[in-house]
Every structure is written in C-alpha cells, then in structure tokens.
C-alpha cells in the first residue's frame, strides 16, 4: 500500500476525530464553509469567538507542522490568477448556497447517512470531475 494512502487514512482519522470533538463537545456539525461563511455574512455573530478560535488553530497547526517536520508542503496551486479567482468565487458562492462543503456534507453528512450530504457529495464530485476533464484534457487550461 503506497505511503500516501496510509498518510491519507491517518490524516482522515484525525479529521474525523476533529469532527467528533466538535459534535460531542460543542454539539455542532464541523463544516468549514459554514464556520467561515457565518463570520462573513454575520449569521454566526453570536459564536464568532468559537469560530475564530477554530479557524486560528486550523491555520496555525499546519504552519507549525510545516516548520517542525520540514516536510515539503507545496500546494501546487495554479499560477493562473484568473482560474484561481474564478475558483474561489465558485467555491464561496456554491458552498454557502448548498449549505456545506467537503467537511460538512461529505464527512459529517455521509457518516450519519444524510441524504442531503450524500446528494451534495455526488454532485460536487461529478461537477469537479467534469471540470477537470474539460479544463485539463480538452481546453488545456489547468
């Protein structure tokens, strides 16, 4: 089994543990787009401190691991800024309209057999797959 897959399983378990702590501890569903979006549109004003604490740790822990492990953590983000801006806008609008992303609908939704979570995941994976095929293999942009 390739080491990347084992890292994937271990990292995945940590993500699941994070969601379990958020659910069993704070009684909420751990969804990154909801936690960020609630701060942006003001719907999460009452819990702003918790949200900022979550996001600060989400930013700082990988930064520390990056320095401590010395592991190359290149994100390989495209240098085409038109693509990056279009992608960011689509992710921002789409996740908030669908009320969830990979963590909320994917990890937390599928694990409770939520039909909404499963349907959302099917649609964003299909749309993502078609987008990669179109823009990589047909248009050659990404």
């Amino acid at each position: 089994m390739p080491i990347e897959w084992i890292h994937g399983l271990i990292g995945g378990a940590l993500i699941g543990l994070a969601g379990a702590v958020y659910l069993l501890g704070a009684g909420r569903i751990m969804g990154a787009s909801g936690i960020i979006g609630g701060l942006v549109d003001g719907s999460g004003r009452d819990t702003a401190r918790d949200r900022l604490g979550f996001l600060a740790a989400l930013l700082i822990v990988p930064a520390i691991l990056y320095v401590v492990t010395g592991r190359t953590a290149d994100t390989h983000v495209t240098s085409n800024f038109v693509v990056i801006i279009a992608a960011g806008l689509l992710v921002g609008v789409g996740t908030r309209i669908a009320n969830g992303c990979t963590s909320g609908h994917g990890v937390c939704g599928i694990s409770r057999f939520s039909l909404r979570g499963i349907v959302a995941t099917v649609f964003y994976i299909l749309a993502g797959g078609l987008t990669v095929v179109l823009f990589r293999h047909i248009l050659g942009v990404i």
Partner: peptide, 29 residues
C-alpha cells in the same frame, strides 16, 4: 439550492483543487 450550490462548488473545487478547509490550513505555505 443543494444541487445548484454543490455543482458550483464542485466546479471551483475542480478548477483550483481547493475547498474551504484546506484553503485555511494551507494559508501559511
């Protein structure tokens, strides 16, 4: 909303390979 929003999200996810969680986690590097 669920279907259209997820399609828009998926398109952005495919274009850049980033979704909200990893976009915060990788901000420092």
């Amino acid at each position: 909303r669920l279907v259209l929003g997820s399609v828009l999200f998926g398109m952005g996810w495919g274009l850049a390979g980033l979704c909200p969680g990893p976009s915060v986690a990788s901000l420092s590097y």
